[in-house]
Amino acid sequence: MATVQLSEAEKVYVLHGIRDDLRVDGRSCEDYRHVEIETDVVSNTDGSAKVTLGHTAVLVGVKAEMAKPRPAAPEEGYLEFFVDCSANATPKFEGRGGEELGMELTNTLYRVFNNKHSVDLGSLCISPGEHCWLLYVDVLLLQCDGNLYDAISIGIKAALFNTRIPKVLISEGEEGGTEIELSDDPYDCVRLAVDNVPCMVTLCKVGPRYVVDATLQEKACSVASLIMAVTPAGTCTCMRKVGGGSLDPESVFEMTEAGKRVGKSLHGPLVALLSQEESLGKKRQKVGFLG
């Protein structure tokens, strides 16, 4: 992870600010930084989104491909995640430097989506046991300024919202087998229900308190953080502690409660924003990567 060097005096300054609920950039402990979302940014994908959270920038692309269903679940499609930490974000990621962090993020994403309700996998099935949709969710980190998990999860939700899977028709082939036919109309698509896709909230324990959406400076002052993936209904689909430190049980309970509250409140504005963007249709002014 990209880190910053902080002197003792700077650390004390950050710590005292958080104690008084006033962070270096003027936010209070449960505030997010400015979030910008733009969907449909990469034309070669079936769904894509770019999210900037402060100075953290993440690009998510979803590509649908046809595959054979997993033997354990013949009537379901599946999702594959990959997080690429490019050397653009920080020189430390050059070569294989970003592999460890990428692996950690990828594994967490698998864990977050490892339940029945996040994505309706049954809708990704084309013909049971034979064909299904496999969604490749590829995440690219463009800039790192703390709070990668939250930015990635917002990006994934937006990209899945934006995903359009072409309709296919299954017909009996001449020799008894099945034939798959792609619809001619490029606008004849299926969309994915994203209502239950969880958002991740990272709570960083700094001194006696915890902060949401920590910057790199704040992260440098913290020894442990708690990551929670929260659905709009408030259920938690994944929780894990990251970092080398330990937490006292009471603060864990406090943090899970706060995480649930923050996570729940994240979904409403996000979905509203996404539908608003969609309603603009073709008139929407594209911002792209220079915005």
Binding site: N115, H117, T237, M239, L247, F253
Partner: peptide, 23 residues
């Protein structure tokens, strides 16, 4: 020391259930 050094959950759980589980 009464400290939690690691925590990992999977699947769907309500926040209250999660806290009870940790206990």
């Amino acid at each position: 020391l009464n400290q939690i050094s690691g925590l990992q959950s999977d699947g769907e759980m309500a926040e209250g259930t999660l806290a009870a589980g940790v206990r």
